[in-house]
């Protein structure tokens, strides 16, 4: 009050000015912005360096690159194998993941639900090389007998045409291992969405006399639908890029076939790189990098679509 007349002009001035920028502030905000930009640069760099190293293979004459008929026919069976294994894995994993997410959020006793979530997350922590060793040591021999049965009784379906592999190193086993590996990531995202289902929706449907399943079908699943789609695509992205497990488990002959239980399977891009890269030189390396570029493009598209779907739900979730 006493100093009012003298202070007033200066507060007017500070109010019109922005908060003072100290040197420390400038350095710190510069550093953190730089780190953020660096990430974008790295992502662009991944694409740029892959293109740079793949270029010699892309412009090379068809008889210099490995494989019989040029780079496109070299990569195509691999891409086919990659997509087949990944979609098959997703087909197995997605329903299971939704069921697991439902169990943890709506069926398990409250007190142990969180611990059960941790246990499922542990599945994600196991390195892929160990899944590969497990797949070839334990899972593959287990499937030999059922695969023989499938060939005998369902052999008219092209998927089970056989001849059944005697080692079990088949596309079916590769897809099963991949399914186990993507299960935790899919179920984690779906779980998060189910947990955010508005409590009032659930209680309202229970109050109307719905059973627990009817409540889930009417309140929880519609709310989580786009998350289920997004999570499945995330899982698909993971399965597309998974390397070591497939490299160890799958026995490759290179042809394009839907036959799941024979020992002649198309390879996958990632596994092929891991298997061939250490012994390759010259143009063969460039060809492998070109196939890696294809894989990068495919996973990038799948992941971007998945994130777009998940983010869209996030924007709406508050209003629902």
């Amino acid at each position: 009050m006493r100093k009012g007349s003298t202070v007033l002009p200066s507060t007017e001035r500070t109010r019109s000015r922005r908060a003072p920028q100290r040197p420390g502030d400038r350095v710190f905000s510069g550093l953190s912005t730089g780190a953020g930009v660096l990430i974008l640069v790295v992502l662009a760099g991944v694409a740029a360096f892959l293109v740079a190293e793949a270029w010699p293979a892309l412009i090379a004459p068809a008889d210099e690159v490995p494989g019989p008929d040029g780079i496109v026919l070299y990569i195509w069976p691999l891409l086919f194998g990659t997509l087949l294994a990944a979609f098959l894995a997703l087909l197995i994993a997605a329903p299971l993941a939704v069921a697991i997410a439902l169990f943890i959020t709506h069926y398990a006793p409250r007190r142990i639900a969180q611990a059960l979530g941790y246990i499922i997350d542990l599945l994600a922590a196991i390195p892929s090389i160990i899944y590969g060793l497990w797949g070839i040591q334990v899972l593959a021999p287990l499937t030999v007998e059922p695969a023989g049965w499938l060939e005998e009784n369902l052999g008219f379906i092209p998927l089970f045409a056989g001849p059944a592999s005697t080692t079990g190193r088949t596309m079916l086993v590769a897809a099963l291992v991949l399914a186990v590996m993507i299960l935790p990531i899919v179920s984690a995202v779906v779980r998060e969405a189910f947990r955010q289902t508005p409590r009032l929706h659930e209680e309202a449907s229970l109050a109307l006399g719905a059973t627990r399943w009817e409540m889930i079908r009417m309140a929880v699943l519609p709310f989580g639908r786009s998350s289920i789609i997004g999570a499945s695509m995330l899982g698909l992205g993971r399965a597309l890029g998974e390397t070591m497990a497939v490299a160890i488990v799958l026995s490759v002959s290179g042809g394009v076939t839907f036959n799941l239980i024979s020992s002649g399977n198309p390879g996958t891009i990632a596994a092929n790189i891991a298997l061939e890269f250490p012994e390759s030189t010259g143009i063969a390396v460039n060809t492998l990098i070109a196939s890696g570029l294809v894989l990068f493009a495919v996973t990038l598209l799948v992941n971007m679509a998945a994130r777009a779907v998940i983010n869209r739900r996030r924007e709406f979730s508050g209003a629902n």
Binding site: L43, G241, T243, T299
Partner: peptide, 14 residues
């Protein structure tokens, strides 16, 4: 978010 989905082998190739 997209980067979390880069296949590990592609990171190696990079």
């Amino acid at each position: 978010d997209v980067m979390t989905g880069i296949p590990s082998i592609v990171a190696g190739l990079f």
